[in-house]
Design a protein around this nucleic acid. Sequence first.
DNA 1: GCCACTCGTCTACATTTGTAGACCGACCGA
DNA 2: TCGGTCGGTCTACAAATGTAGACGAGTGGC
Lengths: 129, 129
Amino acid sequence: MPPEKNTPTPAEWKVLKLLFDLGPSAARDLIAAAERAHGWSASTVKTLLRRLTDKGHVEAQAVGSSFLYRATRPAHRAFRDEADRLLANSAPGALGPLLQYLVKKSRLSKDELDELRALIDAQREERER
Amino acid sequence: MPPEKNTPTPAEWKVLKLLFDLGPSAARDLIAAAERAHGWSASTVKTLLRRLTDKGHVEAQAVGSSFLYRATRPAHRAFRDEADRLLANSAPGALGPLLQYLVKKSRLSKDELDELRALIDAQREERER
DNA sequence: GCCACTCGTCTACATTTGTAGACCGACCGA
DNA sequence: TCGGTCGGTCTACAAATGTAGACGAGTGGC
């Protein structure tokens, strides 16, 4: 079980994603981005930011009289947690097709494909033994 | 965009998963399973079942004076929709590692690994051209 | 024919989520 | 120094969600 307990809600995820994209940011930038991306009002973003910090997904570092917001865990960790939730639900047999679908859809670069293939080969080895 | 709009809530997912595991079932079995799995009362399961049918995830086929509940879409489709939500959030660069993590963690069978590998090879081909 | 039991429907209610206004203090430019 | 602006906190409130009791109709067994 990861330390993160309250997973972000969908709306919170959107803010989190903005934070990942922008990197540590001041409120004004997040608000602007959210306005552009989702048409949200400033208040909405502020509330979500507060809830995210309450839940521990975001950290508000005091800078002068305001804050610099940053995600407490790197993007890949956050996505991994999401992926875990997916696995937790998935039935055993359904996993293969699911991964195939993901690989197909996610249009990895050649390098990424190579890495993935290497990983798969390694796993196949294991199955041999 | 899949036809399914209102995605199931976490609690609804749990019921859906039971349905996938048990196959089309009568209320009593679902209730029993949910009681065992989550300690839920009968009412709770009934409500979730109703909401699932409202949302179109579950279909209640009249049999005698009661219903036989079945998922409207096969498990793999449902999981696929979940996976799509994951992809929708994920940043481009993060995808490779994410898939690696999934493959590693999901302990596929040899056959599944083979299929996945074949798929990857096909994708690599494409990258060539 | 009566009764316990099942089911499905209605209703309920606390909590969480989505969305946002009001207000207040700090800071900056004029 | 005065007024605007920016950011943060408080408060609000409708909708969705989690969880469940109450009730009434059908039914299988006796």
